[in-house]
Design a protein around this nucleic acid. Structure first.
Lengths: 369, 369
DNA sequence: TTGTAAGCGTTATCAG
DNA sequence: CTGATAACGCTTACAA
């Protein structure tokens, strides 16, 4: 003890090298030097571990004498002490980690959501655990199981369907949960979404104003609020203008990916009287539609207009420039992150649905006829 | 005890409802029902917690009598017991979680890397913790600190520069580490990269074969192996063909983003004798170059050819179709995941650099002159 | 202001 | 094949 006390005044550089051994610690198992722990710091500083804990915690630092805070801080730095977050989690019940479930990070809507989310929670010290459900309910469910097992402090679901067992699972596990981009029918979790109905109404209105009467729609799965509401938006605007949406002009896809857009467009364009405009549930589907046009030698927008939704990163560079609906995913991610933080901090006012507006971006894939 | 034993033969459905309470457990703190723990299962099954642990572990299940395995399994299911992974980590030292550090998930090279990685490690039960360094060394460093504090089993760095303090930090923390897409100069960690030198040589050769003599290059930061090697590839091919790369034709960017490509191209095209071809370090920079062309009223590829690198998701849809170098990022992610698994399992044969080949994809942005 | 002691929920190790 | 015990590293009442 006295020997250690004497060391405190000296240059502590040597501590870094021989660390624990030099201070007379017993050898750790299998002579594999373990990282320094709180008790190592405590011994070197001649204080109790709990004092170290307090000295190193900005919240409680004030209750410790300046001298000890300084000594402890220095020694901790010198020997490269890092609090073991796992052990802390065990005690506090908080892992300072949140889980995020998406379908596939390759879908261009997710990166800005993820980034917005991370940015929103980063200063609070939270980390993000990411899982790609890959459109498989089982895989997504397994992912959530693991997140729960790892005691994440909260979960953000971006895969929510209207009746979602995953939402129930998170709720049953009493884990703060937020849904983004989609919401469950029962509103059982706070959700941050864009206004799909309005977005599609605006787009459809725009299409109609361009003179289109034969309007087709490649819709998304009706099991998700986004797919459902976007179709509602199309229908509502069409109806208001007295335009019919005949069954052969409505293609509902299971997975709104490029292949689906391609396949649906191949069918639409081989109709006896094909549509003059195709409203797609999203940009990726619209790209598939464009590819089908190219293969069929049908010109877009000369022969057929195509519209997208989401305004994902590359849409401004495609040819023809895709007319679409801009959605601020980064902001949605940000709001979802803040909402989750509120839930985690326990101040959850009400489960609610936050809606961010979206608006049409006119480019070249939609033309006036 | 006897009472519980009797219950085992009965319908255990009621257990789910009243769970712990019904079995005569003392009330848990603040009457907030905590999730069931291993000892809860143990009591209900009339066995010791360690027996439950073994019965539920596929590895050790064989050492337990079938009868007990069945009983324990049923009860665990009935009361919805989930092993607390945090507590297990505390004991085993393994969190079954890996950290992944990228610059920005919005950069289209990262999603396939991340997905490939996740797919590679998913069956082994690992989860992925994601961090966006955002081109800030400090932020990335903080991210790694937190990952280490959370005791991740391994780290995959996709932000590695030739002399990387982050690599050293991971190594110092004795954490299995793998680098992807880039490697450190000293080869101190196993790395999985694409063959940038060869890729750029092929591309440059292709440009030369198209008859270009005035070839410019918008290079990436020379602090990273990718940026460095791609420029080497350009230089090497040019040199072999006896073509000069004058200083004004070489633009080196700090952050190879769209803005950089735009700015560099604006300069290149305002030269007295501008280049006829611009070789860009990546697709995103090439998009910036294309935008500059559009603004300047310079036609691509009529007036100037532009090439990219990476063949990211949207390149085939842009106009003109971008001639680029295809890199299989999903595969790189997969290999990085496998490499990390080997490191984690301790069978790290040698630190090495795995190189996956890449090849030119010809589209329309490069033309014969 | 600092020390004491009790856990957090698992699993490894050793006994039986 | 199963049970008992200890330990993983930290935090936090409570006590001094």
């Amino acid at each position: 003890m006295r020997k250690q006390a004497a060391n405190n005044g000296q240059d502590l550089a040597w501590l870094r090298k021989c660390a624990i051994r030099c201070a007379g610690y017993e050898q750790r198992e299998s002579d594999k030097l373990m990282p320094p722990k709180i008790s190592d710091v405590a011994r070197l500083a001649n204080v109790h571990p709990s004092t170290v804990s307090r000295a190193l915690d900005p919240t409680k630092r004030s209750r410790i004498s300046d001298e000890i805070v300084a000594r402890v801080t220095k020694i901790a730095n010198d020997i490269g002490y890092r609090p073991n977050a796992v052990a802390a989690s065990m005690r506090t019940g908080s892992t300072r980690t949140i889980g995020v479930v998406v379908h596939d990070v390759n879908d261009p809507i997710y990166p800005p959501l993820i980034k917005g989310l991370e940015d929103a929670v980063l200063d609070t010290g939270l980390m993000v655990m990411l899982g790609n459900g890959g459109f498989s309910a089982d895989r997504a469910s397994g992912l959530v199981d693991r997140m729960i097992a790892r005691a994440v402090d909260g979960i953000v679901l971006a895969t929510t369907v209207l009746d979602d067992p995953l939402v129930e699972k998170c709720l049953a596990a009493k884990i703060p949960t937020v849904s983004m981009v989609r919401y469950p029918r029962d509103g059982s979790v706070t959700s941050v979404v864009n206004d799909c109905v309005s977005g599609m109404e605006q787009m459809t209105q725009h299409v109609i104003e361009c003179g289109h009467q034969r309007v087709a729609c490649i819709a998304g799965p009706q099991t998700s609020s986004a797919g459902h509401n976007r179709l509602i938006g199309v229908r509502s605007s069409l109806h208001r203008s007295g335009i019919d949406l005949p069954p052969e002009f409505l293609k509902i896809t299971d997975q709104p990916r490029m292949e689906a857009g391609y396949a649906a467009t191949m069918e639409l364009l081989s109709l006896a009287t094909p549509p003059t405009a195709i409203i797609c549930v999203n940009d990726v589907v619209a790209m598939g539609a464009m590819r089908a046009c190219r293969e069929l030698g049908v010109s877009c927008p000369e022969d057929v207009s195509i519209t997208g939704f989401n305004n994902v990163a590359f849409t401004e560079f495609v040819a023809p420039g895709l007319t679409t609906v801009a959605v601020d995913f980064q902001r949605i991610g940000d709001l979802a992150g803040r909402a989750l933080l509120s839930e985690i901090e326990g101040k959850c006012p009400q489960k609610n649905i936050q809606t961010v507006p979206c608006h049409v971006v006119s480019r070249d894939s939609l033309r006036v006829i």
